[in-house]
Structures are given as structure tokens and as C-alpha cells.
Design a protein around this nucleic acid. Structure first.
Lengths: 207, 207
DNA sequence: GTCTATAGCTCGATAGAC
DNA sequence: GTCTATCGAGCTATAGAC
């Protein structure tokens, strides 16, 4: 390992420390109230040093939001791709729900930052994050389309509404669920059970 | 109408203008990034004048968060209470879902502020808002309990998970639904349909 | 009730030493 | 790569005139 490589490793580690620190602070306190000095301190350095790795506070948050989406996207896509072919609608959706929740809480600082601060970040930051969001939504739409074709879904379920509701409901759990106190697999089962079969008994028509 | 009353009216109007302006700014930009000068300007006055009506920025946001919850709470409670007695599980839950969405988008600055900035507001503000939140959750729990007793729900649906999922899913719509472009009653129907009956056809067991 | 003026901070970002 | 020092700006909140 030569000097250049070691230098690069050190820079990479500092970059990562900055991102991790900023993600934690952003998700806890919002975007604007977190100062660069606070990020630097949490990353173990001084404010001025942060500018060696990032050109601005916006550049930091753009990278955090993209990482948050792509971590969940990657986990869900991989999980779905690894399912045996011909798997049922329920199994596919259940696997997607569990994978989304698992990734969300594994990288919770990055995903919580996404859920909590996306709506209040400067406009250029939102724009930069749009493609990643659209790509993840497309994964769910494709998955639900496959389910509809191969296994059938109820006639009066709007698949786009279903996708919006699933992602919205799963993301909202970041506000109250604590994986250290609750069982994540149980949470995924509860949510999947409701999303697939609903609240009401199956064979009774609505009164 | 005497002078004292007119004075009081004027003060009330200024208070309301400040709250409305602040709610709009908080929901759009987050808590910390909104300055008191910006609130004052949007309310048509100067920064110093705001302190005649509120003792601090925190006092403003506390009132906004409480109003946001209680507006939705009031609308849902009133809707449920006015249902004919003996109404079915599905009708009760559908009415609750519609009422929540209707109130949410009618008072959208206040409710969006709740959804977006609650997680990143100073701790004393969160504490002050806790009772209002617990009270609203209790309304849903009571409603779902009634539904379970009177009309029956599927055995493997966890009612607490259902309540958390409903409120989380409904609140998440504030991030993407625009009542000027979409039909709110249709949105409520789509969501109720999924929550009550699920994605899958009723009579097919899971494969 | 609303104004102006300002005290006392903290912010993002930059410059330049090491 | 990280530091110290600092600029110019903007912040919350207060004081006192009107």
C-alpha cells in the first residue's frame, strides 16, 4: 500500500465520517438548524476542514439523500430478484415490504433524513434527489404490475394509489418504531397482512 | 362596539395573521430556517411587533402544532359522532378516513407543519404537543375498538398496528397529493378500499 | 399595537499556515 | 488533510419612541 493509497483511504474515511455525522444530525434536528460547526465536531474535526471534502453544506445533504434512497432501492431490488420464479403476489409484496423496512432501519440516519428533511431542503437539493426517487417508485410499479399480471389483484384497487400508500405507510414507521424494542419482522408481517387482506373479514360484503 | 373591543379584535387579527403566515412558512421551509423577520413580513408587520403577540418563536410553533392536531381531531370526532347508530365497520372507518383527509387539506399549512416539522422542533415544543397527539390517537383506538366489537375484524389484524398505519399513510399524502389537481373523495375511497379489503382477491388464499 | 435601532450571537464560507 | 482566524451576513430578542 503506497502513500497515495493511504492518503486516499484517509480522505475517504473522513468523507464517510462527515456523511455519517451529518445524516445523524439532519435526521434528528432538521436541515437548517444543523450548523457546519456541529457536523465538523461530530465528525471529529474543525469546520474549516469539512470544506476540503465537500464544497458546501448543500453538497453534503445531496449525497446523504441519494444514499438514503439507493440503500433502500438496492436492498428491495436484490430481494425481489432473488425470489424463486413464479412466486405469488403475496410473497412478492411481503418480501418487498420486509426489505424496505429492513434497509430503512439498518441505514436509519440516512433514510430518516430522507423522510424528515426532504420537504424542507433548498430547491436545488430536491431536484438533485428526484431521479433517485423516481427510480425507486418505478421499481415498485414494475413489481406491482408483475403481480397483477401473474397472480391477479382486486379489480377496484388502484395500483398507483397502492404504491403511494405502501411507501408512505412504511416510511412513516421511522417516526415511531424502534427496532431495538420491537420486532421488525413482526412489524412487516402486520403491515403486509393489512395491505394484502385489509381490516375486514374476507367473506363478508360491506354493509 | 366600543374601543376596547375593537382593540381586542385588531390584536386577534394580528395574532391570526402571524399564525397563518408562520404555519405556511414552517410547512414549506422547516422550523429553524424560518426567521422571525420572514414571519413578520408575511404577516404584514415588522419583526419587533411580533413580540407584542407572542413571547418567542417557540410559542408560535407550539400553538401551530396544537391547532393542526385539534382541527383534524375535531373534524373526525364530529363526523363519527354524527353517523347513524349501528353503522357498519366499513362505513365508520371510511368516514374517519375521509374526515381526516378533508381536515388535513383544509387546514393544510397547520397540518403539513405537524407532519413535517414535529420531528425537528426543540424538545419543549414536542413535549407541549404530546397530549394533543395522544388524545387523537385515543379517538382512533376507541373507534376501532367499537368496530371490532360491533362488526368484527379479521383475527390476525393488530388494531394498534392498523391505527398507526392508517394515520401514517394518511399523513404521508400531504407530501404528494394536491386537492386542486386530484379528487379528495377518490383518494379517500382508494385508501379506504385498500385498508378495508387489501390488494388481493378476497376468496383466494395466499399461495 | 407597531415602529426603529441595536445588542449579542452564530452562521456559511474563505484564506493561508503547517 | 487539518488547522486557526476572520469576513460579512443574518439571527432572536429587547428597549424605547410614537
Amino acid at each position: 500500500m503506497n502513500v497515495a493509497t493511504r492518503k486516499s483511504d484517509k480522505a475517504d474515511m473522513s468523507r464517510t465520517r462527515i456523511l455519517d455525522a451529518a445524516a445523524g444530525l439532519f435526521s434528528a434536528d432538521g436541515y437548517a438548524s444543523v450548523s457546519l460547526r456541529a457536523i465538523a465536531t461530530a465528525a471529529g474535526m474543525k469546520a474549516g476542514s469539512v470544506y476540503y471534502h465537500f464544497e458546501s453544506k448543500q453538497a453534503i445533504v445531496i449525497e446523504i439523500l441519494d444514499l438514503g434512497i439507493s440503500m433502500v432501492h438496492g436492498e428491495v431490488r436484490q430481494t425481489i430478484e432473488n425470489l424463486p420464479s413464479g412466486v405469488s403476489a403475496s410473497a412478492t409484496v411481503r418480501a418487498g415490504i420486509l426489505a424496505h423496512l429492513r434497509a430503512m432501519f439498518e441505514f436509519s440516519d440516512y433514510t430518516a433524513a430522507n423522510v424528515r428533511i426532504y420537504g424542507q431542503v433548498p430547491e436545488p437539493v430536491r431536484t438533485a434527489n428526484l431521479k433517485a426517487r423516481r427510480d425507486y417508485e418505478a421499481l415498485w410499479d414494475h413489481m406491482l404490475q408483475q403481480v397483477a399480471v401473474q397472480n391477479g389483484v382486486r379489480a377496484n384497487v388502484d395500483l398507483k394509489a397502492f404504491r403511494l400508500m405502501v411507501i408512505g405507510a412504511l416510511n412513516a414507521t421511522i417516526e415511531w418504531f424502534d427496532p431495538k424494542r420491537g420486532n421488525l419482522a413482526n412489524l412487516a408481517d402486520s403491515y403486509a397482512e393489512i395491505l394484502l387482506h385489509g381490516l375486514l373479514p374476507a367473506r363478508e360484503p360491506e354493509k
